[in-house]
Write a protein that binds this DNA or RNA. Structure first.
Lengths: 333, 333
DNA sequence: TAAGTTTTGGCAAGTTTATGCCAAAAAAGA
DNA sequence: TCTTTTTTGGCATAAACTTGCCAAAACTTA
């Protein structure tokens, strides 16, 4: 269960290399990380999907005294009820149908190490209580067991939501929030750190060269321009996936704009065409009307209600925009 | 090389089932397809990425007298120069370094069948000439060969661009265009056929149930609502991928909005909030005004000119939307 | 088929928008 | 600082929009 020192060093180097790409924007994050790693305090990482939350938690773990002990990730977003309990605490043989032998939960597996709880905001309230109880003294028993187990675990949790807001909305327990939110780390989305995109492109292409045994293509500046204009809802992960995709599918020694997938290029639809205000307004209205009509299977009364216009106005606009729509899911002509 | 009749029937049924989902909007496409299948004429399919162009070409093939013979797809978008030639015509042993044995090209493989040329608009001009020459009499020889080969092949080509426009821009040969564009079929993007989204969701979930051996979840209406509001740049393929992803990652017996990936939800900044028409219009106008002001560094005269409204109107709207903007690239307050 | 219900489109009137005009205020230039 | 130029906002008016009303048309039900 103890990891070799040289392997840990190698892991640290590899992970740091990827993360260090955002050095400028991430500089103070790295400082917090370095400080926080030394002490056994809980960390809450906030950031959009794909920003590298698990990566940060691994860095913290690998730089802590617990580095040689287990790092155990749990995605709480896909577990609920008994499944969550089972995952965390394990069970004894015969505890429930299917429990054919004793099984350790994550707490036990992470003993002396780090437990990484991803998507913690999605934890149902009942399970939050289970979790909170353990956080108080780190004592628990397996499902169907009597033996009290005590573990020594550092908790790093992560969320893509504003947890404070979830507390305000009553979706997350405030007491649990304060247990987890000892040190907060916020990872900004890629759209707020576009300066690192060239470096990341380079890095991920280098990775692809190693993984797929192909020559590294040169990336045209116009491609980087496009990348800098895009909002990257999927963050670093999306950039990485796109580059892999392009890398694999493209046999040229150059990546230019035309090599990018059309569903990516679609986001930059006809950038050179300027629309006047009337057109922009009409299109927005037309689109809103059509989408609402689709949603309510052509019911004009409902459409008008949703859009908060009178039925007579709707009829007027349907005529204005020459929208013909029949009831019962028929398409507009 | 000849396919069994029962296998073809099975293939037809399976493919038609998926395609028939858009029956209402696709009805006249199906009529064209049925007619065109009988005759050996070339077809040009136009549609965005992910709309099912290859699917349509397969349907045509499977409904044609060539059904039992090969259907050979080529993605011309990723080939150029000699590679394209080699792919199409094959080569003789020793034709070039690496040609260690004779190899048939796609024309030969598709003999008596159908050659499907995807992304034909991306074919470099030199390769267009090669291709055009063969289309004239379907005679060619392999690279490094003397033997004249004659094949009987039906050509179905596909593009996600307006090919006529590419001709106009000089990027595509007009003579080749007319060879390919005997019967045009246009497949509309999913955003123009949103009425079929509920049916498609159902269909793809059924598929996932079969593929992954999991129980079929119920989809909440709000999810369908969201799907109907999204523009689907990746078309049907994107919807399919998203549903698979949700299906695999989600263990609940229900798919609600919170189970959708955050990079998808990102497109709906406030998904539960329905906007009325006035709000939609205002936002569209405001956005357009601000973006134009940004572009011309705050010059109101230019902004008005670009948006084709009077300067007085612009002033009126700036006040209406409470936009304060100073000249010289300062941001709006 | 007849009766009841819902939808449609013409009409009118009140409200909102677009925009010319121009004097006053602000900005730019000498 | 003075003069010239540009911008701003009040005002008025024509055009466009919104929407209630209601009779006719279309649809649904028994």
């Amino acid at each position: 269960m103890k990891l070799q020192s040289s392997y840990i060093k190698h892991l640290q180097k590899s992970i740091m290399q990827e993360f260090i790409l955002g050095a400028d924007a991430m500089h103070n994050i790295m400082q917090v990380v370095n400080q926080v790693a030394k002490y056994d305090i809980n960390v809450l990482i906030t950031g959009e999907s794909g920003t590298g939350k698990e990566l940060v938690s691994k860095i913290i773990h690998l730089q802590s005294p617990r580095a040689e002990n287990p790092f155990v990730p749990v995605n709480s977003g896909i577990l609920s009820g008994l499944m969550f309990e089972d995952k965390l605490f394990g069970h004894e043989k015969g505890a429930f149908t299917g429990a054919i032998s004793q099984e350790k939960g994550c707490f036990e597996m992470a003993d002396k190490g780090t437990l990484f709880l991803d998507e913690v905001s999605d934890l149902p309230l009942e399970n939050q209580i289970d979790f909170l109880r353990v956080l108080e003294d780190f004592c628990f028993h397996r499902i169907g067991g009597n033996e009290i187990l005590e573990v020594d675990v550092r908790i790093i949790s992560a969320t893509n939501k504003d947890l404070k807001n979830e507390v305000k909305k009553g979706l997350f327990r405030e007491d649990l929030f304060y247990r987890l939110h000892v040190v907060p780390i916020y990872i900004p989305p890629l759209r707020d750190r576009k300066n690192v995109i060239p470096k990341m492109v380079d890095h991920f292409l280098d990775q692809s060269v190693t993984n797929f045994k192909k020559q590294k293509p040169e990336v045209k500046p116009e491609v980087i321009d496009l990348f800098c204009r895009y909002d990257w809802p999927g963050n670093v992960r999306e950039l990485k996936n796109l580059l892999e995709r392009v890398f694999i599918l493209n046999d040229n020694d150059t990546i230019s704009v035309k090599h990018l997938p059309s569903d990516f290029l679609w986001h930059f639809k006809d950038p050179h065409r300027i629309k006047d205000l009337e057109e922009i307004r009409s299109e927005a209205e037309k689109k809103a009307i059509l989408e609402t009509l689709h949603r309510v299977a052509g019911d004009k009364e409902k459409t008008a209600k949703i859009l908060r216009i009178s039925p007579r106005t709707l009829r007027y606009k349907l005529q204005k925009y020459n929208i013909k729509y029949e009831r019962s899911s028929k398409p507009p002509i």
